Simulated assay, not measured.
Amino acid sequence: MTKIAIFASGSGTNAENIAKYFEGNSNIEISLIVSNKKDAFVHERAKTLGIESVTFSKNEFENTNEVVNYLRDKHIDFIVLAGFLLKVPDNILKAYPNKIVNIHPALLPKHGGKGMYGDNVHKAVVQAGDTESGITIHYINENYDEGGVIFQAKCQVGKDDTYEDVAKKVHILEYTHFPIIIESILKDKNG
């Protein structure tokens, strides 16, 4: 059984979608939701789904081993970032080498880096006049949005599309592909 922790900072729609996808799976379990915000709606989703959720402060993430120790105590094997807005610190990267994946709401390397998340990304896509956007699922490393790309999916951006239109198209790609790609990564890792 592979135990996954999902890290999320906000509403948790991707976390919920992933958790529902793996419900009843005998090989993969969403065991824990980790957030850096006590009031993030992802905690309410976790309650509804019957998944433990916990909050750690920015300081606990960045300056202590509390998060790593907690993950180890819970026998977490793999981490999925789903709208997690803090940079993952080195101690977690070292504890989980090539075992942390993120989804970015654009086609990296375009529109990545610090501050490029959510609507900021979709606005940048529209402002740049891009004709396509999409999602990038990638491993993470010590730099924002620079880890090895695992998968990309594209959607068209019309010349009259607003950033909200782009967001809707990208969300569909996220919900469709992220759980399936997580499952395929874990199948590959587990032989």
Rank of each mutant, 00 (worst) to 15 (best):
D119K: 12
K94S: 13
L86Q: 14
V67N: 00
I51D: 01
E174S: 07
H177G: 06
G147I: 02
N27W: 08
G12W: 00
I137R: 02
K168Q: 15
N63A: 00
G115P: 13
N190P: 08
V170F: 02
S57L: 06
T176S: 09
K123E: 02
E183W: 12
I140A: 01
F84P: 13
I51H: 08
N25T: 10
K187E: 12
K47N: 13
A40E: 04
L81N: 12
Y139K: 00
A167M: 05
G115V: 04
L186F: 10
K123Q: 11
A95L: 06
L32M: 07
L186G: 00
N27T: 15
A15Q: 07
V67W: 00
Y21F: 15
A5M: 05
A95G: 07
K123T: 09
L108N: 05
N98S: 11
K20F: 09
V68D: 01
V121Y: 04
T48V: 14
A95R: 05
I6V: 14
K58M: 01
F41P: 08
T131F: 01
R45E: 06
H104A: 01
G118T: 07
S31D: 11
A128C: 02
L86T: 13
A82E: 12
E16N: 12
F22D: 08
E62Q: 12
E60M: 01
V80S: 15
P97K: 06
D188L: 10
Y163Q: 14
N59K: 14
V54R: 07
R72T: 13
A40R: 09
E52D: 15
P97S: 08
I18Q: 03
L173V: 12
I150F: 09
Y139W: 01
F151E: 05
V149R: 02
I181W: 09
T55S: 14
